[in-house]
Simulated assay, not measured.
Amino acid sequence: HTGEHYPDGLSDGELIYKYPDTRRPGTTDAAEIEATKNAALGNVPIFVILRSEENSDLRDIYRGQVTDWNDEAEEFLIRFSSDPALLQVEGEDTAEKAQEGKEERALADGEEAGDKEGEFDLTADKAGKKKERHARPDQSQFRFKVKKRYGLRCAVCEMSTEQLLEAAHFRGRGQEGSNDPRNGIVLCRNHHKAFDDGLFAVRPDTLEVYLKESGPSAEELGITRPQLEPKRETPHQRALQWAWNRWQEALEDENARPVA
């Protein structure tokens, strides 16, 4: 990973690796993709090679583990460390099979369909609170899992160009929000900025998009969808409610209106 083509895909201990598209003869690229998936399914470690921070002419080599992949976005999520003991393999979501297994077990235990994904943490771990895992989820993992969960399209407009899509938090990291993908949604860059600035909000019970009465119109903001329409799943109700309550408090006496 050189950091030149996908600089935002690298964070501490995690890497988003795009499927190779070198157009080499034959099935070389396809074989590499299949081998990388098999490494995930078989818990086979791989090497992650990065440019050295001390000398750009040198390379640092880490032990890595492929933890998930997304065929729609054509990318792998890889965890790496200089200490193999810090790589959590057992219990990690390994592609679709792990999630399907979770859902089947949850339904077998009699859980409601809406709770089949297990416990939801709206806030990040507080100092001094330790969880039984060796590596902490980082921004790369959040971005990867949000796009895999919701699909490659802005939730409030028609933008589907992947380079312009971002993973937005409902409860942000600055407010101790977690990196659980259910605390996020896919938005284009413009609407991510507009959402963070409070120019629109999402009503939790109806998923309708609301605007400030005195603020920019839907047309001015480029919002084309009056209701949140993630491609597959919906965010967690607690995340939606937290963001809605905070937006309502900021309105004070000002009115709000749904997008027509």
Rank of each mutant, 00 (worst) to 15 (best):
N255G: 14
R189D: 02
Q88R: 05
G118Q: 03
F142T: 00
F142G: 04
K131F: 08
D180P: 10
D29N: 11
E72A: 14
T27C: 12
A239K: 01
L211D: 02
E4F: 13
G110N: 09
L87Q: 06
I33H: 07
W69C: 08
G9A: 05
D196M: 09
C188I: 00
A201H: 03
R51A: 13
E75C: 10
C157K: 07
Y210D: 00
V186Y: 05
E162G: 11
R257W: 00
L221V: 02
P258W: 02
E117V: 01
I16F: 00
E53N: 11
E176S: 14
T234E: 13
E119Q: 09
K18T: 03
V202Q: 03
G114E: 14
A73N: 12
T2R: 13
W69Y: 02
C188V: 00
D196R: 06
I33M: 05
R79P: 01
D205F: 04
W69I: 10
R23P: 01
A124W: 01
E96R: 14
E112G: 11
S11K: 06
M159Y: 00
N183G: 06
V259K: 12
E229S: 14
R51H: 09
R225A: 11
G172S: 11
V66E: 08
Y62E: 04
D71W: 01
S178E: 04
L164I: 01
F200S: 01
I49N: 11
T94S: 08
K145V: 04
D253R: 05
T123M: 13
D125I: 13
L240A: 03
E111I: 09
P137F: 12
Q99I: 15
V156L: 14
K145P: 01
E254F: 02
A113M: 12
A113E: 15
N245A: 13
W244I: 05
W247Q: 00
T161H: 08
Q175C: 08
P216E: 12
G174E: 12
F47Q: 15
A135G: 13
I33R: 10
P84S: 13
L187G: 09
A218G: 14
S217Q: 00
T28L: 14
P226E: 01
E213Q: 14
Q163V: 12
T67G: 05
L50D: 13
P20C: 03
R133M: 03
F170E: 08
E92K: 11
G184M: 02
N183P: 11
F142W: 03
I61R: 06
R189C: 03
K18S: 09
Y19A: 10
P7I: 00
D12T: 10
